[in-house]
Design a binder for these strands. Sequence first.
DNA 1: CTGAAAGCGCTAACAG
DNA 2: CTGTTAGCGCTTTCAG
Lengths: 376, 376
Amino acid sequence: MPATIRDVARASGVHISTVSRTFSAPHLVNPETRGRVLACAEELGYRPNRAARALITGRTHNIGLIIADIANPFFPPLIKAAESQARQRDYHVFVADTNEDPIAEEELVHALAKQVDGVLLCSPRMSNSLIEQLSREVPLVVINRQVAGLPCVTMDVGQGARSAIEHLLGLGHRKIALLSGPRGSWTSREIRRAAGAAARAGGAELTVLGPNHPTGTGGGAVAEQVRRGDVTAVLAYNDLMAIGLIEGLDALGLRVPQDVSVVGIDDIALSRLTRPKLTTVATPTAAAGRTAVDMLLQHDTVAARGSRGGRGGTVDDRRTTAQVMLQTDLVIRDSTAPASAAAGRTRPGGAEDAPGPHRLAGPGRPTVTTGGVVAS
Amino acid sequence: MPATIRDVARASGVHISTVSRTFSAPHLVNPETRGRVLACAEELGYRPNRAARALITGRTHNIGLIIADIANPFFPPLIKAAESQARQRDYHVFVADTNEDPIAEEELVHALAKQVDGVLLCSPRMSNSLIEQLSREVPLVVINRQVAGLPCVTMDVGQGARSAIEHLLGLGHRKIALLSGPRGSWTSREIRRAAGAAARAGGAELTVLGPNHPTGTGGGAVAEQVRRGDVTAVLAYNDLMAIGLIEGLDALGLRVPQDVSVVGIDDIALSRLTRPKLTTVATPTAAAGRTAVDMLLQHDTVAARGSRGGRGGTVDDRRTTAQVMLQTDLVIRDSTAPASAAAGRTRPGGAEDAPGPHRLAGPGRPTVTTGGVVAS
DNA sequence: CTGAAAGCGCTAACAG
DNA sequence: CTGTTAGCGCTTTCAG
């Protein structure tokens, strides 16, 4: 039913190759004929079949984006940024959710492999070796973790965790808990390392609680441990956990930030909507999405053009690909307060339900280096 | 670099068609040969190229899902449900976000058309006529609106709005505002009609405010109008707007639910996390995603198999496709209270910051008909 | 500048 | 059960 290149050729009285050129190399065809062809195509509602084209050019103009969990509000900004960046370069993004299931992830990569020119992989669970293996099947850019030899874009959560701890130290906290993320997560490891170092340097005691499921429920589940842990402040693996923790603490009769200060990581939109508004480390997720697309496409065109070297050493070529790390910012809101605030005296009047102006940090973003890039 | 069917044929000493059969019709090939072929394929890391296969079978085993805004928490559950349902039937879902831009939507449909077997369209903005036109290019299932002659899955927001208004009437509210959604939205129209009728029947006055942008910001923007409107209760087009409104009201010194009751629609996860917890109309988004996939695939296989009738009347065939409407439920939480509650006396102690047990509605879901189906 | 021919990776009758 | 022969819709040499 849909018109093919042949229908257009017949209608406009030219050979199919002329029609083909009209669309893929317009400058190679006489303006007059081109006009005629275009008119016929328009009339017949013809549109080149990208899949057929891909079969021969080897370029689908699609890119795959594999996400552990779309419902995690951390991802949508990344997805949207990737999409708009891709669209600008005339690419489409196919997003696939895996429900945090590494098996599904692997299958998805295989299924996608032939339908896309490359895959952006946002997958905390998969093993490094599996990722490397998959990268031989389709060009990969890894997001949120580092894999030797592959292009990666990460956020400097280490720096973020350090800032968070220092902020807490500055408020007088000396007994701090860290809610770690899923086992095997690169991000969680980085946070732990940096937070540990910062705490040590400040003479504070850091208790690691976890691993935990990186959701609100996961955060709520450790509220009891936090209480027993006798700490005055907590740094959570992400905002969702931080928010869940605040809820859980609340149910236990502990108030944030009066009884315990809580810091999240990510700065998802939700963090501005909860009470108290969450102090958190903002990660530049949109920039990450854009950057990942750029890296994939660059890597891709390079691979397609630089045919001078011929075969051999393709693996070695990959080893030179860049690893980008984006800066993070601490944004101070209402979930942190001085450690000495044993009773709720930080806030004017009756805490959350005070109708007056919110105690939202004015400047908000001490470091303004968001989106800064460190290449290796 | 990736192995092709020919490589496998050569390696296993059979013709390529035998290899083909090994994968697409295993029962037609001698177990012994099949084993050999499979072994070689495994060794070479061969995987059938789905795009090439699609070119000839006409079945890509992909389905497209076009979403106005992935960042709207209403959609992720729908997306995930659609994906898992599709996966069960050996289909993949390609999700595309359009930033609420109808132009992008149309282009996306065109681009997707040849790479998928059908498209699920979740697109409040597009005109009916454009949708009909697109449906001639690729099988479409429309979500969240009704288009004559096309398969649609909607949620009974009319019923939901009615329950919400009746709940409000029961609490004694007589001056109610309705925050409408985007202009031209089917959902918004349904809500308005049903809410209007219910209010009239209950002898209440319903003021319509809008159209509005269906986001938190959109909701916050009308807080001032709501205050001036001198109403005691508000029904919002969706939860995001309801939450934004609550924030905005708060900034104006009005408390929810003491000064004004607010009801949302959707029951996104966030509604359980805000203070006060939002009373809202739960829409079965996951069921909608599943259903849409089922309808598309059924419609699809029917079209592929039922070749008995031959040509002719394809349009008429489509006219018989089902329109499914899923039931909604009112879930009562903390953002609604009796109209007479001029001062905060509904809740025990000091409102939101009371650390005690939350006043969350016990049973919660009066109607238990979620997922109920009404076919036409 | 345009046509002819070859073929991307695969499936689908049709013989054998 | 397996090989042969076409050909999906398109691009790309290569001649003219």
